[in-house]
């Protein structure tokens, strides 16, 4: 069979894998942003006890590979009686990983707000909460956009690791097909194109977004 016919035949399966990659990435990214926001706020306001727990979480999550986090969730947790399906494991793993990256991004943004801004705020008599609400957060969020954008791309790429717990996303689909039909060139080609279709337009959009929110660097 010609390469083109092989590719055409595999497209319905790749489309499914593609959709699953998009879907899991989407849920994972939303979850990561929520967790990241909570963690960064706990750290910003130095909430007693919780902010130490948050710091420990960030260090554990950032300094271990997603693959072993997934293995732990998928293979080791059932031993102690906690069992999730593969896809749920994937999402939990991705949020566990992504949450800390997003938190670091937000924290970096908050810390990036220039001292002059903070001092001016204090000088006009803003309370700690007002300072956060009107000065640190609006500027901090726009400063954290580049880090967020990098994290979004990173997390989408990390979903390729889901293949180790047999979630039929893009990479898993390609590896399965290669195992069945030995047409590695064709399937790898579709696989790379699949990621390119998601990541190239996305990184262009994110770069444009970064340019639009540049005003956040005011006063630096």
């Amino acid at each position: 069979m010609s390469s083109w016919a092989i590719i055409q035949q595999s497209l319905p399966m790749f489309t499914k894998g593609f959709e699953l990659t998009l879907w899991l990435s989407f849920i994972g990214i939303i979850g990561s942003i929520i967790v990241g926001l909570i963690v960064s706020l706990l750290q910003y306001f130095k909430v007693p006890v919780l902010h130490q727990i948050a710091s420990v979480y960030v260090e554990i999550s950032r300094n271990t590979p997603l693959l072993i986090q997934l293995f732990f969730l998928y293979y080791a947790f059932p031993v102690i009686g906690i069992k999730f399906g593969a896809e749920l494991c994937g999402i939990i793993g991705l949020v566990f990983l992504g949450g800390s990256y997003m938190a670091e991004g937000f924290t970096g943004g908050f810390n990036g707000v220039s001292k002059g801004q903070l001092e001016s705020g204090k000088a006009i008599g803003l309370s700690r909460w007002q300072l956060a609400r009107y000065i640190v957060f609006p500027q901090g969020f726009s400063l954290s956009v580049p880090a967020m954008a990098a994290n979004v791309i990173f997390l989408i790429k990390e979903t390729s690791i889901f293949t180790v717990i047999a979630i039929p996303e893009l990479t898993n689909t390609a590896l399965d097909l290669i195992g069945l039909y030995y047409r590695s060139n064709e399937y790898l080609f579709v696989l790379v194109i699949g990621y390119a279709i998601i990541l190239i337009p996305l990184s262009i959009i994110l770069t444009l977004l970064e340019k639009r929110v540049r005003y956040g660097s005011f006063g630096n």
């Binding site: 990390e158 790379v192 990621y195 190239i200």
Partner: peptide
């Protein structure tokens, strides 16, 4: 190297170098 996930990079080299 930025767009292609590392898992995929490994498999690209794993399959394509010996075969092609």
């Amino acid at each position: 190297f930025r767009v292609v996930p590392t898992v995929v990079l490994l498999f690209l080299f794993y399959y394509i170098l010996p075969r092609e």
